[in-house]
Design a protein around this nucleic acid. Sequence first.
DNA 1: AAAGTGTGTTACCATCATTGTAACATTAAT
DNA 2: ATTAATGTTACAATGATGGTAACACACTTT
Lengths: 149, 149
Amino acid sequence: MTISSRFAVAVHILTLLETGRGEPLTSEYMAGSVNTNPAVVRRILSMLARAGITVSRLGAGGGTMLARSAADITLKDIYRAVECQEHLFALHHEKPNPKCPIGRNIQAVLERATGAAQSALEEELGERTVADVMAEVWAEDREARSATI
Amino acid sequence: MTISSRFAVAVHILTLLETGRGEPLTSEYMAGSVNTNPAVVRRILSMLARAGITVSRLGAGGGTMLARSAADITLKDIYRAVECQEHLFALHHEKPNPKCPIGRNIQAVLERATGAAQSALEEELGERTVADVMAEVWAEDREARSATI
DNA sequence: AAAGTGTGTTACCATCATTGTAACATTAAT
DNA sequence: ATTAATGTTACAATGATGGTAACACACTTT
């Protein structure tokens, strides 16, 4: 089981928007970098806009921009916006047997354990911002270039 | 996107096995507590056995037991066995555009960020063992009883 | 005012993972 | 031999995901 690629695409998109620096970018342009369909980009942008991370301008000359500084957008914000509003871990499909001491208590215990794990994951994501990602992308590019030259 | 219920069921099963204390339990018995089909239990047990967490005896009078002490089985072990052998986060379906500076470097950066997040999650899961879960289940049961009496 | 551009949303399809279910060969105890 | 149990396979139903097309609406430009 994996977390969907929406998170990866969302981070990609937001990094692109940061390079735009105020200029709105179109979904078609971003789709060209992500290598997917513009509607897929717009679908993800719709989630990011609902979370207050991006703003769009309709009509000709329109497009999307960051709603706030890239240094104020953490990967946790993005994760919550496009992946997981609530619980990362699923519990049992059917309620366990209430006549069994394990069955009637295991879910409360599991909720604590998985909640702690999810919090740990989100805290780690909260340590990185879009600005950090951008800086790492440039560093990566410089390194790749110096290696091949 | 959620992590499948296999993890929850696996923890449930292993907690049951710990109560068995050496006596092998059948998949039918465990399915009764989990409230699912015995074959579902056996499917998960097969993954746990492959990871060296449980051992089974075939034939009449057979069943499954823990392969080692419950205090030596962490939730991380279980998670790795039934959910996620490799990457928790998916990257792009199609490779991003290599002509774009963001496109050709974003995946390396994403791998570091998501890898760190996954490690944080697994470390947290590694803090808890089946023995801990068992103790919490009993505590939960005592509390529930004292509250209703 | 008219034409053109781009978003936001809907609908639909193909694919894949998950869960439940039945079936069956194999193994072991009685 | 008979019975009981695992381990595995196959299959259906469901739901999430990603790709695609279409279109109403908003806005700019001419």
